[in-house]
Amino acid sequence: MQRDFVLRIIAKLLIPYILLFALYVQFHGDFGPGGGFQAGVIFAAGIILYALVNGFEQAVRLVSPRILPPIAAFGVLLYGGVGVVSMLRGGAFLDYNLLAHDPVHGQHYGILLIELGVGITVASIMLTIFYAFMERNR
C-alpha cells in the first residue's frame, strides 16, 4: 500500500474538488458551457481517477458497482418523469411551460431537472462501463 503514495495522496486531495467542479458544471449549464452530460462525465472521471490510483477493490468500497445501474435507471426515469408530469398537466411530453405558473420558470425547472437526470445517468453509466472493464482487468 505504501508504494506510489504520491499519486494517491494528490488524487485524494483533488477528487472532492473535481466532484464539486462536476456539480458546478451540472448546475451552471444554463449560464455557461456545460450541462448534465459534461457534468456526468467529469463526475465519473473523478471517481475513475480514484479507481485508477487506488485499484478496483478500493474503488468498489467507495462506490459500489451494484448501486450504479439502479441509479442510472433513476436518472432516465427522472428525465422521463418530467415529461410525464408535463403530459399529465395537459401539455405535450416535455412541455416545461406547464411545470410552474410562469412558463419561463417552468422552463427553468424543467431544464434543471432533466439536466440532473442526464447527469445522474451519464455519471453512473460511465462508471459502470469503466468498472466493467476494470473488473475484467484484474
Partner: peptide, 14 residues
Amino acid sequence: FLDIAITYALINFI
C-alpha cells in the same frame, strides 16, 4: 470558457 480549460486540465491529468 475557462471552465473548459479546467476540464481539459483535469481530463489531461486523468
